[in-house]
Amino acid sequence: MVASARAAYAAGDWAAGYASFSAASALGPLTPEDLDAMATAAWRLGRLGESARLAELVFTRHARRDPVAAGEKAVGLALIWLTRGDSNLGRTWMERARELITGALVAPVHAYLAYLDAAVAADAGRDAELRERVRELSDLEQQLAHPEVTALGLVAQAREALSQGSPEAAFELLDRAVSVVGADPSTIEWVGEVHGVVVRHTRGAAEIERSDRLAMALEDWLAESGLAGLYRGWAAHTRGVLRVRGGDHRRALESLGVALREYRVLRPHGDTADVYEWMTLAHRGLGDSDAAEADVTAAAAIRRQLGG
């Protein structure tokens, strides 16, 4: 059973790998490596809650014997919780990671943590801290020569440009991030973070041709990687926005509906509110004022929960 799970996972068959690991775990405890693979497969299928639960078990096992490995897992858990929209838990895991990897040889995990620091600073509007983290990422990029680190650094620079009121410069940086990001299956979560942030900041604001090209890059990557869940939600959300912008309101609602279904794994989240806001425009375009009003109400309720 474990052998078949490992084979499916190695082949990128996340559903079969997860199912086989789950069946094997019912017969006896999995090794930390197999438990980690099961957690990763759950993430790639969009089961973020299950992925977090399993990853915490892996963290606990590593914490007893390998602080750096535990720190790497803590950074991954921070990404999960920040992605789901729980900034408090995300920051808690970031601090655990920082304690564990401080003083260790420089590795990509240091850059991943610096990137999360930059993302949190950007979300909070702390521009001075964001600038500092962008510089830190630039230094780490020079030391590591790692494609995901380079791409994440470009994303952080783009967010800095947006904070300075320079959207065109930001869009150029996001274009570059997509062009350099790697396809190493061991770093899918960070490649996904690059694609997710890129489409989030371009789908409604960049010119349609650029937005469409970046959306297609995400869609192609999903098809190649066999990913589902939240990643599919990002792609459908983006395609829906582009269809609203192009006047194809009925098909836009189909895409945005897919995004809403995939976003059920999120806590109250700006992406979900954004979907409802674009659905408002689509329903108005179709002359359905009642549905549009319901969308407005749903979006406003989420924004209130987020303090917006």
Rank of each mutant, 00 (worst) to 15 (best):
R98H: 11
R98L: 13
E99K: 10
E99W: 05
E99D: 13
L100Y: 12
I101D: 03
I101W: 04
T102F: 08
T102Q: 12
T102N: 07
G103M: 06
G103S: 05
G103D: 05
L105Q: 14
L105M: 09
L105W: 03
V106R: 13
V106G: 09
P108F: 09
P108T: 10
P108W: 02
V109K: 03
V109D: 01
V109I: 11
H110T: 05
H110W: 07
A111F: 06
A111G: 08
A111C: 09
Y112N: 08
Y112P: 03
Y112F: 15
L113Y: 04
L113F: 09
L113H: 01
L113S: 01
A114C: 02
Y115Q: 06
Y115S: 02
L116C: 02
L116Q: 10
L116S: 02
D117P: 00
D117L: 02
A118T: 00
A119K: 11
A119S: 12
A119E: 12
A119T: 02
V120F: 04
V120I: 11
V120H: 02
V120G: 04
V120Y: 02
A121D: 07
A122R: 08
A122S: 15
A122L: 07
D123K: 15
A124Q: 13
A124M: 05
A124Y: 00
A124G: 02
G125S: 14
G125D: 12
G125A: 13
R126D: 04
D127Y: 05
D127C: 05
A128T: 12
A128D: 13
A128S: 11
A128F: 05
A128C: 00
A128R: 14
A128I: 09
E129H: 00
E129V: 07
L130K: 02
R131S: 14
R131P: 04
E132D: 12
E132P: 00
E132Y: 00
E132M: 01
E132N: 03
E132T: 12
E132F: 01
R133D: 06
R133K: 14
V134I: 08
V134E: 06
V134C: 09
R135N: 03
R135T: 07
R135G: 01
E136I: 03
E136R: 14
L137E: 05
S138R: 13
S138C: 01
S138Y: 04
D139G: 00
D139P: 00
D139M: 00
L140P: 04
L140G: 09
L140Q: 06
E141R: 15
E141M: 07
Q142P: 00
Q142A: 15
Q142R: 15
Q142L: 15
Q142F: 08
Q142T: 10
Q143T: 05
Q143W: 08
L144T: 04
L144W: 08
L144A: 10
L144D: 09
L144K: 12
L144R: 10
A145M: 10
H146D: 15
H146Y: 13
H146C: 08
H146V: 07
P147W: 14
P147Y: 14
E148T: 09
E148M: 05
E148L: 11
E148C: 08
T150D: 06
T150L: 12
A151C: 04
L152C: 04
L152A: 03
G153L: 12
G153P: 03
G153M: 07
G153K: 09
L154G: 03
V155H: 08
V155Q: 06
A156E: 11
A156L: 14
A156I: 11
A156H: 13
A156P: 10
A156G: 12
A156N: 13
A156V: 10
Q157T: 10
Q157W: 04
